[in-house]
Nucleic acid binder design. Structure first.
Length: 587
RNA sequence: GCGCCGGUGGUCUAGUGGUAGGACAUGAGCUUCCCAAGCUCAUAGCCCGGGUUCAAUUCCCGGCCGGCGCACCA
C-alpha cells in the first residue's frame, strides 16, 4: 500500500470513470484529460466546497470571465514576455539558459527578447558567449523559442491575436474597475473565480497533476495596505505544518508544527494576510479529504519568488513520497493592478477619503495656447502636458523667466508668463490608492487527484481483498447505492421506487440489480459511495431496509419512511453511523 | 524539448514472421442470496503511418501516447 498508489489510482480512475486521457480514439493528446461520470461530480463537489469556504463564508464575490483574452491583457500582465522566452542548451553540461538574458548580460542590447531567434544565435557566436555554468562555448547551438500560452485569433480575416488565459486571475484584474464599483468603492473586497486555464506545457506528466488544460480556483482579495487587517483571531488556533525557507536550506531542516497565531508571533509567517489564508486553507483541505499527515505549507525560497511578492507559501501534498504543489498563497502588493493601470486607459485605483479633508497648496498651470500653438505647432499639446507634469513635480522650475520642458527628446523653453503658473490652496478630501492583492490560488485537478489518492484503501472482508475510497460524504460523487437483494418477487420494483424517492430528495443515487449482492457492494466501495441500501423480503413485510456503511461494512435496519432523512443526516455529518446503529438497537 | 524503456479486449497481462491466449470486468441464462461463490454461453484486442517480406501484432524507420531521469513549470 505504501508504494505505487498512483498507479492503482490511475487505473481505478480509468476503469471507474473518474478521469482518463482525452481523445483516446485518435491516439490521445498529451496533457488533456476528461473527467468521467464519477470524476466530474467529485470535481464539482470539491469546487462547491471551495466556493462555500472561500467565497460564501468569507463574504467574497464570484465572477466568471472568458477564457480567451486579447493580447494587450497579457502585455500588461507580463505573460507575453514568457511567450518570447528563448532557451539555449549547453552541449557540454546540458543546462538550459535563457538566451535573451545571456545576450543582454554581455552586449549593449537591452531588449534581446524582441530579437528574432536567428539573430540571437548569431549574436551568441559573434560575442563568443559561453555557458555560465561550465564555460563551454555556445556558438552554433540552436536557440529554441518557447511558448507557454495558447495563441488564437479573435474574429475573421485580419483578426486580433488572443490567448487562452494561463491563469484565471487576469479575468478578475482586468475587470477591477467595474468590480470596485460593484463593491461600492470600499476596501477590502474579494473576488473569486473557478475556471479553466491553459498552459502549453513542454512536458505534461503524472496524470492530471500536470496538464495543459486545468481548473483553478482563485481568490483575489483587494486590500488597503495601510488600514486593512485580516481577522487573524479566527484562525490563530489552527494547527499548521510549516516548512520555512531557512529550514529547507539547512542540511537537516525540519517542519515547524505550530499554530497560525504562534507562527505570526515568532515571525515565521511575516505577512498577516498570507497567514490568515493558510489558516483557512488547512482545515478546508482536511474537510475535503486530504490527509493532513501528508500535507504541508512550504515557503518559497528567495530564488523562486517573483520579485513583487513579499512572501509566498505553497500548500503541498505527498503521494508515493513525492511532494507537489496544491495551491499558492502570495501577497502580490499592487503589482497586478499597477501593470494594468499602465497599459490601460482605465483607472485601477480607489478613492480613499481622508478622515479630515486637507488643505494643501497645489501648483497649477494654465498654458496660453494662443502662444504655444503658433510657437510649437503640432507639439504644443505635448508641451502643455509636460508643463502640467513639471508644475506638479518641480515647482522650482517655474522660478526663472523661462520654463524648460522636455517632450519626445526635444527641449522647449516657454516664457513664464505664458505658462499660467500659479499656486493655489485647495481642499483635498482624499486620494486615489492602488489596492494590494492577496492571492490564494488553488489547483482543482490536483486537489481531486490528491483526495482520491489519499482516500485509497485496501483491506480484507471475510478473507476477500477489497479496495475502496474513503471519501468524505461531502465530496463522494455517489452518496448512496440502492439494491434489491434479488431481482424478483417485487423487491426490484420496491428498490426502484426507493431510489427514485431518494433522488427527489437530492441524493446522488446509483441503482444496481446485477449479479450477487457482494459484488454490488464492492462496486460502490471502489467509487467511494459511503452508504448502500438493500431491499429484501423484510422490506416487503416490515417496511425496513438495511443500510450498510462503506468503511466498516457494518449494517443496520432503518424504516423506509426514515431512510431519506437518515441518509441526509449521515451525509451532512449531523449523525454518525454508530449513532444510527445505537438507535436501531434501542428499538 | 533531450535520453532510456515501453504500447496486445473495458482493466491487468502471456505470446508469436503465417493475424492471438489467460485473468478480472461486462452482458444473457441457470443456481444461490447481505459482502467479488459456481456452471453455461456471449461481447470484446495486437497505437498510427511507411519500409523489408510471399506474409508484419512480431523486424527496421518515423509519428503519437505512456513511464522514468534531465530540463521547464512564468
Amino acid at each position: 500500500m505504501t508504494e505505487d498508489v498512483s498507479e492503482r489510482v490511475v487505473e481505478l480512475a480509468k476503469r471507474r470513470g473518474f478521469f482518463f486521457q482525452s481523445n483516446g480514439a485518435y491516439g490521445g493528446v498529451s496533457g488533456f484529460y476528461t473527467y468521467g461520470p464519477q470524476g466530474a461530480t467529485l470535481k464539482d463537489n470539491v469546487e462547491d466546497a471551495w466556493r462555500d469556504r472561500f467565497a460564501v463564508a468569507e463574504g467574497h464575490m464570484e465572477v466568471d470571465a472568458p477564457t480567451v483574452m486579447p493580447e494587450p491583457v497579457f502585455e500588461a500582465s507580463g505573460h507575453l514576455d514568457g511567450f518570447d522566452d528563448m532557451l539555449v542548451e549547453c552541449p557540454e553540461c546540458g543546462e538550459n539558459h535563457r538566451a535573451d538574458h545571456l545576450v543582454e548580460d554581455d552586449t549593449e542590447i537591452e531588449e534581446a527578447e524582441s530579437v528574432p531567434t536567428e539573430e540571437v544565435e548569431d549574436l551568441i557566436a559573434e560575442h563568443d558567449l559561453v555557458c555560465p555554468d561550465c564555460g563551454t562555448e555556445l556558438a552554433g547551438q540552436p536557440v529554441e523559442e518557447f511558448n507557454l500560452m495558447f495563441e488564437t485569433n479573435i474574429g475573421p480575416g485580419s483578426s486580433q491575436p488572443g490567448y487562452l488565459r494561463p491563469e484565471t486571475a487576469q479575468g478578475i484584474f482586468v475587470e477591477f474597475p467595474r468590480l470596485k464599483e460593484y463593491a461600492r468603492n470600499q476596501l477590502p473586497f474579494g473576488v473569486t473565480q473557478i475556471g479553466k486555464a491553459y498552459r502549453n506545457e513542454i512536458s505534461p506528466r503524472n496524470s492530471i497533476i500536470r496538464v495543459r488544460e486545468l481548473t483553478q480556483a482563485e481568490l483575489e482579495h483587494f486590500v488597503d495596505p495601510e488600514e486593512d487587517e485580516p481577522p487573524l483571531h479566527r484562525v490563530e488556533d489552527v494547527r499548521v505544518t510549516l516548512y520555512p525557507a531557512d529550514e529547507q536550506e539547512k542540511e537537516e531542516g525540519g517542519y515547524v508544527e505550530t499554530t497560525v497565531g504562534e507562527a505570526v508571533e515568532e515571525g515565521i509567517l511575516t505577512n498577516d494576510w498570507v497567514a490568515y489564508y493558510l489558516g483557512v486553507a488547512e482545515p478546508w483541505y482536511d474537510r475535503v479529504g486530504v490527509d493532513m499527515d501528508r500535507f504541508r505549507f512550504r515557503q518559497h525560497l528567495s530564488g523562486e519568488r517573483a520579485h513583487y511578492a513579499a512572501d509566498c507559501w505553497d500548500a503541498e501534498a505527498e503521494i508515493d513520497g513525492d511532494w507537489f504543489e496544491l495551491a499558492g498563497f502570495a501577497y502580490r502588493s499592487d503589482y497586478d493592478l499597477s501593470k494594468h493601470a499602465e497599459h490601460s486607459d482605465e483607472e485601477f485605483t480607489l478613492f480613499k477619503q481622508y478622515d479630515e479633508p486637507k488643505r494643501v497648496e497645489r501648483a497649477t498651470v494654465d498654458p496660453d495656447m494662443s502662444y504655444l500653438g503658433p510657437e510649437f505647432g503640432g507639439d504644443a499639446g505635448d508641451v502643455a502636458d509636460a508643463l502640467e507634469r513639471k508644475a506638479e513635480r518641480d515647482r522650482a522650475a517655474f522660478d526663472g523667466e523661462d520654463v524648460t520642458v522636455e517632450t519626445d527628446g526635444e527641449e522647449y523653453a516657454v516664457p513664464l508668463e505664458k505658462t499660467g503658473f500659479g499656486v493655489e490652496e485647495v481642499t483635498e478630501s482624499g486620494e486615489h490608492i492602488t489596492p494590494h492583492v492577496v492571492e490564494p490560488s488553488f489547483g482543482v485537478d490536483r486537489t481531486v487527484y490528491t483526495v482520491v489518492a489519499h482516500a485509497y484503501r485496501e483491506d480484507e472482508v471475510d478473507g476477500e481483498e477489497r479496495s475502496y475510497l474513503d471519501l468524505d460524504p461531502e465530496v463522494a460523487p455517489t452518496t448512496v447505492g440502492v439494491f434489491p437483494l434479488m431481482d424478483k418477487d417485487g423487491m426490484d420494483e420496491r428498490a426502484r421506487d426507493i431510489a427514485a424517492e431518494l433522488r427527489e430528495d437530492g441524493h446522488d443515487v446509483t441503482y444496481d440489480d446485477s449479479g450477487a449482492i457482494g459484488r454490488r457492494y464492492r462496486r460502490q466501495d471502489e467509487v467511494g459511495t459511503p452508504f448502500c441500501v438493500t431491499v429484501d423480503y423484510e422490506t416487503l413485510e416490515a417496511g425496513t431496509v438495511t443500510v450498510r456503511e462503506r468503511d466498516t461494512t457494518e449494517q443496520t435496519r432503518v424504516p423506509v419512511e426514515d431512510l431519506s432523512e437518515t441518509l441526509t443526516a449521515l451525509r451532512d455529518g449531523d449523525r454518525t453511523f454508530d449513532e444510527v446503529l445505537v438507535a436501531a438497537d434501542a428499538e
